[in-house]
């Protein structure tokens, strides 16, 4: 995994993976359900999980600006939605999101985990004007499971809701929903708090039963003044694995503080995934227009040694 280090990154001492998308997909791929039902059908059908937009290597090429390239080189990872969206208080519409995942495992002794990236987000330039408010949200979470709990610490930038700007960060927080409520009435595979990016009742303001707004979470990120101009923005989320809680979020020039001890829902452990470490980046459309999240590179680092 060749990597071009830049001053944007501030990793913890142990580099787990350093992914520069000038050198391929680096193990990132579409997040898809488990095709374990008869006929290779998906494991549950509570909502449509099989039609999210595909992930690809992008040169960030546009009709009028030409090739934008990436922060270091030509290619970035482009996570794209399809041209679909549901109202903000409804479950996500088929294809309204794009999600990319990388599947790793927690090495011994790790106490802290940091996921860093250089990101940019755009709306497809398929019509005149500025499309910034056609992108509802983007975010990142990590799927983790230790000996007792599966949990998904993560953050979401709510950019716009029903065409109106929001520009605020929220984080995944505990829910009291039952498993059935969590899965929109289908009591099946999913435990409450797991996969908060698409489960859990949604509200008209862009929140869900498993999100909490940061107190100082308003941030006007650089969308730029046209749908074909992008600015690579540093992102960094740090999680304490021993306390299963958040430490810090850094985005652009801002440091966002979590309340002490803030953590996501701690769900019961699932079978066959103890020790997983799966970072996921995602993007959500707000209207019937494709939206994309671009990642120049991703750096996953950790702190902690063998006793």
């Amino acid at each position: 995994m060749p990597f071009s280090p830049t001053g944007y990154f501030d990793p913890l001492p142990r580099i787990l993976v350093a992914d520069d998308f000038d050198h391929g997909m680096n193990g990132w791929l579409d997040l898809r359900p488990n095709f374990v039902a008869p006929g290779f059908r998906e494991h549950s059908d509570d909502i449509d999980l099989i039609h999210w937009g595909p992930t690809m290597l992008s040169s960030a090429t546009f009709a009028f600006g030409g090739t934008h390239g990436s922060a270091n080189g030509t290619y970035s990872l482009k996570i794209s939605s399809r041209a679909a969206a549901a109202p903000p208080d409804q479950p996500p519409a088929p294809g309204s999101m794009g999600l990319a995942i990388k599947r790793l495992a927690v090495p011994p002794g790790v106490r802290r985990l940091r996921v860093e990236a250089l990101v940019a987000y755009k709306v497809e330039q398929d019509r005149p004007g500025l499309g910034v408010n056609d992108l509802r949200a983007f975010g990142m979470f990590v799927d983790l499971q230790d000996g007792e709990h599966r949990y998904m610490p993560g953050v979401r930038y709510v950019n716009a809701v029903e065409g109106s700007p929001v520009r605020r960060w929220q984080y995944y927080s505990p829910t009291t929903a039952t498993d059935e409520e969590w899965s929109y009435g289908a009591d099946g595979w999913h435990k409450a708090g797991i996969d908060p990016q698409w489960f859990g009742e949604r509200a008209a303001d862009g929140s869900t039963v498993a999100t909490t707004w940061f107190d100082d979470g308003e941030q006007h990120l650089i969308y730029n003044e046209s749908d074909d101009k992008l600015n690579w923005t540093p992102f960094s989320l740090t999680v304490d694995l021993t306390r299963r809680c958040y430490e810090e979020l850094r985005v652009g020039g801002k440091v966002l503080r979590f309340p002490d001890g803030a953590h996501p829902t701690l769900a019961p452990a699932y079978d066959d995934i103890q020790g997983l470490l799966n970072p996921v980046f995602f993007v959500e459309a707000d209207t019937d227009r494709r939206v994309s999240l671009f990642l120049d590179s991703v750096l996953v680092s950790a702190e902690g040694e063998l006793a």
């Binding site: 937009g53 595909p54 690809m56 290597l57 992008s58 040169s59 090429t61 290619y75 482009k78 794209s80 399809r82 494709r290």
Partner: peptide, 8 residues
């Protein structure tokens, strides 16, 4: 089908 970028 979805526009797929694959210039590489």
């Amino acid at each position: 089908t979805h526009p797929y970028e694959c210039g590489w």
